[in-house]
Write a protein that binds this DNA or RNA. Sequence first.
DNA 1: GACTGAACTATACC
DNA 2: ACGGGTATAGTTCAGTC
Length: 824
Amino acid sequence: MRTDFIPVDYDYFDFEGKNHIRIIGRDRRGKRVCVIDSCPVYLWAVLSRDLGQSKIKDLMEKIKKIRLDSKGRQTRVEAVELHEKNFLGQRVKALKIFATNYKDLHDNADRLALPGIVNRRGYDLGFITHYIIERQIAPLQWYEIEGEIIDNSGEFGGIDQELQVDLCMKLQNHKRLEIPNFSPKVLTYDIETDEFKIGEGEILMISLVSEDFKKVITWKGSLERQRHEKPKADYVEYVKDEAELLKKFVYYVKKISPDFLVGYFSDGFDLPYLKTRATKLKVSLSLGLDNTQPRFFRGALPTGKISGIVHIDLMKFIQTAYSQYMQSETLSLNEVSREFLGDTKKDFKFKHSSKIKKEEWDSYFEYNLHDSVLAYGLFQKFWPDMLEFTRIMQEPIFSVSRNGMSNNVEDYIMHNLGRFNEIPEKRPIHDEISARMRREKYEGAFVFEPIPGLYEDVCIFDFTRFWPSIIVTFNLSRSSFSEKKAKDFLEVEVKGKRLYFSKKPEFFPQMLREIIEKRKQYKHELKEKPDAIKKARSNAFKLLANASYGYQGFFGARYYCPEASAAATSISRDFIKQTIDKINKAGYEVIYSDTDSVSFKLNNHTEKQALDLLKELNENLPGIMELELEGFFTRGLWVTKRTGTIGAKKKYALMGRDGKLKIRGFETVRRDWCHLARELQNRIIRLVLEDGNETRALQYLKEVVKKVKQREINREDITIRTMLQKPIEEYKAISPHVIAARKMREQKIPISGGNLIEYFIAETREKKKLVRDKVKLPDEKGEYNIEYYLKKQILPAVENILQVFGVNISEVIEGKRQTKLGDF
DNA sequence: GACTGAACTATACC
DNA sequence: ACGGGTATAGTTCAGTC
């Protein structure tokens, strides 16, 4: 039997003491295919350098005799081979030790604590990762496969009988096919409940959206209508109770049989809620292709897994892959949909189902359906990215869609080690992680202290891929790092300590070099002939390159190397300072610099002259380091810190030649300031940059101050939003937003870490000193506190800006006559 | 009770 | 537990006078 096949979901099982992989996927006609396969399992034992031939032979004989009785499983070392390998920069002799079952590799490793063996590695990858590496059957790539059909043959304990697939086969051969596209069958879902706390309320309705399919299943709404009328909308389907609702949900999932069941924050809400209610109501939530129920894995965030159908929670992926580009201030479905789909959630004012009026149910159904419609739209939008991420990292989409970038970097490394003949390093375990977390911070990048002022004709240069280019150019990695000096080694001094790095290209910088090359190639191809896949691929490589620096400093990394990070930042400081010096010496004046960028005054030079300088600077840069033009700006504004007269770092505003603003760090870009202050500041910055003086800005400020004093500002514009970063009880300092969160909890609004808390500062009867004593929730009665909003929101937002022009703002706000320093 | 610096907290920049 | 360090700034907390 031969067919084409794309692997979607990977699982494994034991049969007769051996591991078998079970891949669920599709063929090109859309038939669901299950492939059973196995592969040799092994680990590596790195041998001591001084071990002679005969000693090695003796050791191999000894290892071959290892027998294990592991949890009732009789297993043994099946074979031992001697190999020349690379391991962390060393050329080593290593034994490849084959075992019966992957689960026993750990126990085998324990038995290998023998003289002559210095390291044991490669037993902590997980069987699925091991299998993909070993057999090169990567997820979401097309293959032509050949194998033996399993059809009621009772093989593997009759695995095919309990699986709802069209074809089940045992794999013999496979060959990669170059087909870029795959259109998965997708079903999005969303539930509505009476309580937010998992399982504590009833599930009122579930919406489902797939291609040409829209459905809201509910047991709520008018009973009369159920009996006598047809529902208003044809997508609504009534069932008799909550248990029936759950059964109907399972029925439709099975009927549509999607590759992906997709939700938004569904790992944290929808799926666990469904599971909890199903257990309570004794309904089997048998969503799996083998009729099993979802399984949950506890982590920082819980994840819900369904056998054979990949459960995808879009929120996590969007956060990892897109949040750095996003304008949205939260990851809420509403904001994310507005940004990427130009659509928002439907309006519906929540209340307990017992209080919902007969005619209100229809809009609730519509609301519920639309959430699934949005999730469906978002899935389509991000599908090319998820597809390419999965293909590049070569891990199942279930993990890739949930991974952070450090995990992605590591997956990429693990699946590419083979090309470098490299033995995998082990994952740090608990003690090691805590030791790493305790380490001292290393010194970071350089930030230049600006002189506050308004500047004309500003130019900005910045280094392209700063960190990756330093790591590649100077070969900074765990494998190349050495505490001892050797011939030709790079020497970097960090905190009085000397660090050394070999110049022999090691796999980490080499891989990074390839990632950068691939990014360039796909970016180029994208420009030639744009399509979504190329765009996604190019972007994935860009993110991978950018995450590589953080990875080496991350405590959970296999290839953790804070020395490499410290060397990278040390080198970065040298280069940026050199660049600043050179620009100044060329007759320009550097205003500001942060990490990889330099802003400077043109000082009557032309743009062409600046570009010539850029070219000259580039000619003197080593390796793949590169400086580029960020842009020319008509005006730029730098302000003082709130206290004192020194220039504030990470806070500036620029106006491009096209009149577009680039604002960094100011309150206007901070979500924990009220809109009143943010919009006012934004306007003031614009006026100041456009005019080059403060006249119009001052006038505008006075208008707003007047409105505030006359209580003409909307509640929405004085609402402050602050993230509750942890559970309420864990706060040592009780700040205003903690008070607001407590008030919400008193009102039975469920609050947990990660929620955005909204409140405003109100007038109080008695004179209260602390801000937190004036906190009110947005729907509470009360008037806003004029003094607070003037002195604590407006004043700080504009004071430093107008100070640049010598205007004392507190007098404007107090209502006194404005004075300019010039008056004196 | 007013004042002051440290601690805590949130969020930005690159 | 699920990238790093640098930086600003508000509010509370705890100590002093």
